[in-house]
Design a binder for these strands. Sequence first.
DNA 1: TTCATCCTACCCAAC
DNA 2: GTAGGATGAA
Length: 797
Amino acid sequence: MIDYRNELNPAQYQAATTLEGPVLVIAGAGSGKTRTIVYRLANLVEQGVPASAILLLTFTRKSAREMLHRAGRLLEHSATAAVHGGVHGVTGVQGGTFHAFAYSVLRQFRPSGYEAGDLTVMDGADIVDAVRHCKDNLGIGKGDRSFPRTQNIVGLISKSRNKELDIDEVIRREAFHLLVHAEGIGRIAAAYHAYRREHGLLDYDDLLFELERLLRERADVLDWCRAKFRYIMVDEYQDTNLVQARLVHLLAGEGGNIMAVGDDAQSIYAFRGADVRNILDFPKLFPAAQIIKLEENYRSVQPVLDLTNAILAEAPQAYRKKLFAAREGGDRPQVVRPLSDLTQASLVVSRIVEFLRSYPPHDIAVLFRAGYQSYHVEVQLNKLGVKFRKYGGLRYSEAAHVKDVLSYARLVLNPLDLPAFQRIAAMSKGVGPKTTLKLYEVARQGNPEAASRACLRYPELRADLDLLDGLRKRPHTPTSLLEEVMEHYKPRMEAAFPDDWPRRQQGLEQLLQIAASYRDLDLFISDLSLEDPGEEEENRDSVVLSTIHSAKGLEWGAVLLIDLVEERFPSRHAIARAEDFEEERRLMYVACTRARDHLCLFVPASLYSRGDGGNQPAVPSPFVRELPGHLFDEMHESYSGGLMRRDVQNGQRGAGFGGGRGGAGGVGGGGFAQGNRFDGAPGIPRPPMFAEGTVPGRAGGAGRPLPPTAYPGGTQPGVQGGGQSGAQPGPQSGPGVAAPSPLSGGSAPAGQCGYCTHRIFGRGKIVQHLPPDKYRVNFPGFGLKVIMAEYLTLESD
DNA sequence: TTCATCCTACCCAAC
DNA sequence: GTAGGATGAA
């Protein structure tokens, strides 16, 4: 028997043991929310509720699986499971995202109004392709420079549906400058809608709305759902949107057994229609709802908690919680001020290397606002041979070769899947957009002579169509089908990607692996759109790089948060409207509350931008400026690359930018290993500003007052530095490719045995030469690393 | 009509 | 780096 009362605190206990009726759990960051859900799952099962009657809606399938796994372990260890003969388990619990759940119901009870044979779920790239197709088709915005990009249009369409507002209204509210194009955008949206219906395609928003429509139109389906899922739990409820809340209400019924878990302070998805009001209005929607608050924080040390509480203190909040810590001691968070975003990357990486002494790689994370911001850090990590995994960025299933292969599979399933057809057709020489459409019409009308005529002209395409016909003739498992497709596709891939096809081949093998666990092709394909399989395997020997959004719900021993400057964080998109700005603040809160022991905030003093001639000064993020100075330690990078501690005595909040000159000097104490080790070290490219001798915004070095920035409610924030908006710095080197290192002076080792020195890892023994230019080296304390020769200095013995 | 090439503006977050 | 528009040749 699980000892719920002893293993949970009183609030958690109440949540885990209240099984009937509606319950709202307000769970502060790090308050053992997951633990509570896990125990409640176990409890439900112990009480004899069949697993198949439980629906667990979470933010990712991964977190659903994690909870189910833990609940299963809990049950295994309890005596009750044995008493009941082990029949109880959590294996039958349905868990995943709203979208995945919606698809599972929709494929079972097909909604009315879809012509084509099968329903295919579109992923982000499919959606962009489809909208572009509609836009071109209508000839809207052609050659008009002021017309928004397809991506932007997709964003507007999705926003209008998620917020359930007219697209004109969305434009009026959030993109006033596009108002002149509102009519055209509206027409594209309408065409895109018709396009999906015509081709049997569902985008993310369709999944939710079509499920709602189905449940409202078909009483039998609603009854079936209610009878089947008698206990529903929804995690991260603060990030549900309107239609999701209605779905919850529909599925549970007014007095239903529904538990919603969330934290209004962590609502960070308003941009996709999430509405904090959902969590605030939960008691109205379910009048009998009990409200339980989890306020004790088990995750973070007190100094980290103090800082995160300070971030939250500035925010208006409905469900007031006072988080108190269960963990004593710990270091104060650090604010590090690198000279530029380029040197920031070096500092971040050396900090990571330091943390690697006390934490396993997967317990260290670098977090950032937007995917592209980790670029420099990735380059630096590659240089040092530190493995990392990046979350939030290009999806695995959106890689070209994967999409190619999947297009065949999609056509087998749904012969009129136009996006897939276009993809396949475009691979053939001599076939462009026009020809593709003609051929598609021919195929649709089933005109045999026209078809064979067309095939004669394009032998490659003919081979594709033959393959598809062959595949359609007999039933296939996802695996056998993919194997056949891949065999057919391989020569194409080798031709199309001459330099890296072997790596892509590996990716396809991975796809095969994933497919192996599916029996139904349509489920397999839709799952790829709904959940990134790349996130499945957790790599325990890789440091984590993640967008803050993707970091939701996770925690690490050490968290490094980068690019805390205006325009980047808060995002430049979020400074005009107060509500957007508040969401940025919550995002900052979410980021910082991910840290258990160590939190480092990086505030680069300048940003490198190619377009604007080098480095532009950057203004520290208001989220850092507003922090009371006694809550953190502050370090400045010196011109020579070392770090110096800011004089705490002068440490009034916000006033000390550049004031650290007279401080404790050197580093040592702050934990950044050796103080000035960057000086003249080989292989560290200095930022251009250094070489050029000009340091915008830092000249003079001290006491420059902070540029005032106005925020929503006040005047428009001035555009600093000439209005550039963070043009991507040109790559100084691709990942894994050595940058020219101006100072290295040709120190590449030539021998292959013996010892070498690395500027971060120190002295190590060369274990193996990996031609042409890498070495496997064993560094005491760090273990085996693969390092490029350029970054090693051979010991001349 | 397709394809190669150049050029420029543009990048926010995710199911 | 990428999307996608403009351009001109095949």
